[in-house]
């Protein structure tokens, strides 16, 4: 189909010929995989010995294209990363599209193509999908929902059950924080000058596929998306018998991200990431794990940023760059709107 200048019309979601044409020429053609191709109303999945993880997420990022990615890449990576954080190897995804009338078919193709690329990189199938079109103004360009299924790497069900966190364990981040949120903010505020900003959006299964089994020493993972690293740490320690002590100096933040944060009055600790993982590692395995992570392009800047403590249970304490101490609390008040 020649899509130059063509726009999505209400008919593309009507269930009739136009819709079938769109599904055939865009979704089937680009996602092309046996699970989807054989699909009737539902995909049928294989059964495995280990437990299954299941998650869903909706994406409404504005703008839909931003430096380092687009809404499609984000939708695939976001759901994959949620599965990875649960200790699972992602297997397949579903993708639901809500498209505003008038959206360029060419842009939709670009987005679907980047979803297919990321899924392929991560060895994941897009096994089911759906499309709806709404009148102009009833949604903003394009919203995508993805759900995902993965299989756990071993017989455990939760991280805690496998290996409880204890004082002395290492707190590790796989790279610089705040990149995604600030790339989107830059694209929104200064669309002509986003040089240097790059979302970190990436499917982390590539980084973790080899590290999910117990011998690597990972006790817990959480991908610090909305609310950033600070909120993930608060979530980790809330109502627990241990606390977290982190060191501001050790937390990697890119200079341009820091600069834009200063300008807009944000704290990079609270800014979203889409390709980073917060890890708690057994104290005797932490150093080795950082070494392993560093060997992969997605973990090159991995480092230890703190320690699990017996003191201050339920709390996150940060040693600031100037040597002061302060509490890190959940994000409250205004968040950055529509960054994922």
């Amino acid at each position: 189909m020649n899509t130059d200048g063509k726009r999505i019309m209400l008919g593309h979601g009507s269930g009739g010929g136009l819709m079938h044409q769109l599904i055939r020429d865009v979704f089937f053609k680009i996602f092309d995989n046996p699970l989807l191709n054989s699909a009737g109303d539902a995909a049928v999945l294989p059964r495995r010995a280990n437990m299954m993880a299941f998650t869903t997420d909706s994406f409404v990022v504005d703008p839909v294209f931003f430096p380092g990615g687009d809404i499609g890449k984000l939708a695939v990576c976001g759901t994959i990363n949620d599965l990875v954080a649960a200790g699972a190897n992602p297997f397949c995804l579903s993708a639901g599209f809500i498209i505003e009338e008038g959206f360029l078919v060419k842009d939709l193709e670009t987005i679907v193509r980047s979803m297919a690329t990321e899924a392929k990189n991560a060895g994941v199938f897009v096994a089911a999908g759906d499309t709806k079109v709404v009148e102009r103004g009833k949604c903003d360009q394009l919203f995508i929902n993805t759900s995902g299924i993965g299989y756990l790497a071993d017989e455990r069900t939760t991280w805690q059950q496998a290996n409880p966190i204890c004082p002395g364990d290492h707190i590790i981040i796989t790279g610089s924080v705040g990149d995604h949120g600030m790339a989107v903010m830059a694209a929104r505020n200064q669309p002509d000058n986003t040089t240097g900003f790059q979302s970190d959006c990436a499917p982390l299964s590539i980084l973790f596929n080899e590290l999910q089994d117990k011998s690597a020493g990972i006790k817990y993972m959480n991908d610090p998306t909305r609310g950033g690293l600070a909120s993930s740490l608060c979530e980790l320690t809330a109502k627990k018998e241990f606390g977290a002590a982190i060191n501001e100096e050790a937390i990697p933040v890119k200079p341009n991200v820091k600069g834009l944060c200063d300008m807009l009055g944000f704290d990079p600790l609270y800014v979203a990431n889409e390709g980073k993982m917060l890890i708690i590692a057994a104290y005797d395995k932490g150093h080795q794990l950082v070494g392993q992570l560093k060997q992969h392009p997605l973990g090159r800047e991995a480092c230890r940023i703190g320690t699990i403590t017996r003191e201050n249970p339920g709390m996150v304490l940060m040693r600031t760059k100037i040597g002061g101490t302060r509490i890190v609390n959940m994000l409250s008040g205004e968040q950055l709107p529509r960054i994922c």
Binding site: T320, I322, G323, G324, T325, R326
Partner: peptide
């Protein structure tokens, strides 16, 4: 002041 933990210093 609070963000940098100045009171603790």
């Amino acid at each position: 002041i609070r963000k940098h933990g100045i009171p603790s210093l």
